[in-house]
Nucleic acid binder design. Structure first.
Lengths: 152, 152
DNA sequence: GGCATTTGGTGCGGCATCGTACTAAATGGT
DNA sequence: ACCATTTAGTACGATGCCGCACCAAATGCC
């Protein structure tokens, strides 16, 4: 790699890091009492894809260690937003099911966050957001592949 | 905002969050013993802009709470990479100065990380990274502005 | 000058994240 | 069927991040 190429990646990762921080803070400000973006993310995922998935599948989907997912799911269960039931296919495993409260929480959160995003849409059109996605997804794919490690 | 616009932002922030996580992990794997991306970021910033800045200025530059910056700077000082001297303009304040070890650390880290990025450059050309930057920077700007407008 | 308010920095405590190590169950080779 | 290996989930401990409360110095107001 040419030495002049590095700064582009440095700047890119720097921008991504700060954006991650800012978006995290912005979203969490609109979430109820002790709930974090990770909680919303999991519930949202369970609705968008389907519930009944195992913790490990979720951990992989979010690219986090399984211990982190255990912790997040414990929080969701404490708040009554999901229910952990045994996995009929595998006695070691569990399945994560949404509760009615979980679905209600997600609907409310989506509404609140959408409301928060209204001014954002004026300064940064959704088309621009959509246009960024494929490239970022491609970059993610590449970094995934480059990842040494295991976990899983 | 149209309800159909929200998913674009959700997906974008989700991708950004995961990329932040992946890049953080990838960079930290190339950093010496207990040093984190935050440490590198500060040292790099002190070189790119200039050293002698106060902790508060740095905290604002990185969009982190000042307590976090205190913590990061304490780590850098413990490793002998920066030196905290009293601020001649303000007795409450301090100035952060790079040490020779700090500059050496930065050079080494840049080299190591550039080396690590070589395979990345093959699958994701630097031009693509550079092309993403302006849009992400614009988005950051917008979110910064939205943040300032909030109650605190 | 005297006093209230603001500002820079830090100690402390709570919480999230994640690596290590462990248990229990499934899998595969024989 | 047996046993070694792999896999799902968790307990525990270490560490980073950050909000709150506090102190000391600066600033503003009279």
């Amino acid at each position: 790699m040419d030495d002049r190429d590095a700064p582009a990646y440095f700047a890119l990762f720097n921008e991504i890091g700060i954006l991650s921080q800012l978006s995290r803070a912005a979203l969490e400000a609109r979430l109820p009492n002790g709930l974090l973006v990770t909680h919303f993310g999991v519930v949202n995922h369970l609705i968008r894809v389907k519930d009944g998935q195992t913790p490990l599948v979720l951990a992989r989907a979010f690219q986090v260690p399984k211990t982190s997912m255990t912790h997040t799911l414990a929080g969701l269960e404490r708040h009554g937003l999901v229910e952990m039931r045994p996995n009929p296919k595998d006695a070691r495993s569990k399945c994560v099911w949404l509760t009615d409260a979980g679905r209600a929480f997600r609907d409310q959160a989506v509404a609140d966050i959408s409301f928060m995003m209204a001014p954002l849409a004026e300064a940064f059109a959704p088309e621009r957001a959509a246009a960024l996605l494929p490239e970022l997804a491609a970059l993610r794919q590449v970094m995934d592949a480059a990842r040494d490690g295991e976990d899983g």
